[in-house]
Amino acid sequence: MTGGTGVTGGTGVTGGAVHAEEEQPLLVLRDVRIGLHERRGPVEIVRGVDLGVMAHEKVGIVGESGSGKSLTVLSVLRLLPDPPIRLLGGTVEYAGRDLTTMDERALASVRGAQISMIYQDPMTSLNPLLRVSTQIVETLTAHTTPKHDARRRCSEVLHQVGLTDPDRVAHAFPHELSGGMLQRVMIAMALAVSPRILIADEPTTALDVTIQRQILDLVGELHETTGMAVVWVTHDLGVIAQFVDRVVVMYAGRIVERATTEELFVRPVHPYTVALLGTLPREGAAHRSPLTQIGGQPPDPSRLGKGCPYRQRCPVAFDRCSEEEPPLLPAANGGVAACWRAEE
């Protein structure tokens, strides 16, 4: 697959939604390829991802373990665990500049100041030896906020993320706080700098649903008031449905479908998306009626061969699917899908 095919018809950037022509995406990933170095040579695990994120939009990336969704977003700020995983090719443009080749100092001014990232494990971003307030203030002063303002902003954001006793939390060390509190501290830290883009890699997966709701509400509110763009990576289709404007579905290291949230749930096109939605217990269905299963397993990235990576599990596969991997094609739901039957 080449990068060019992914942006067929201009949909690579806007996912088929009609945007004014002058509006430029804030973040553009082009043909991003990520490899895992093994003794036999590199194995490509993200195989040419094209994605554009506009200011003021919330994009969801959904996929299962191994689909490449987390690596894709980690590559944006050059946070891939290298070795053994590294960027093999492609560009990541933010405000017209390529982050993949930018020097470290310039990148540091983008990282955490204009693009913030939050993770599933809050300790990824917290230092166990420093008080919460020290860490938040440090983040802010590193990005040219005067120290006095930084202190005020610190208690402000801790309050915003729904912590009931922000002062106590500010003075605590990470080990003195519960997992849910740490998660919110990390989110507070990411939001303190008022980033233009927030990238979230399953940050609420380990949290209770009520806390998750508070965090989604908070991020949604900031998105509304500041126009912060959001990229939300998750395997939770409920979060996708309720929270984002536009969805990309990843499978075996590629985007297999891209559509508006509404269209994706109402008229999914790629057989994998259809199957994924079918696995959910549906309200209104008879109690305990069997759920749709997806037979088989995702392919081993080192043994993909030619053809569509979903073909062995696909109920509608035909000859062409085992010969040629389909590019993203315009789909009946207004989006694009990597399926030879997308237009049917």
Binding site: T210, R213, D236, G238, A241, Q242, F243, F265, L280
Partner: peptide, 13 residues
């Protein structure tokens, strides 16, 4: 009720 309300439903409508 709060718990049920907090669960994101996989149906955008």
């Amino acid at each position: 009720r709060a718990l049920a309300a907090a669960v994101p439903v996989p149906d955008p409508g």
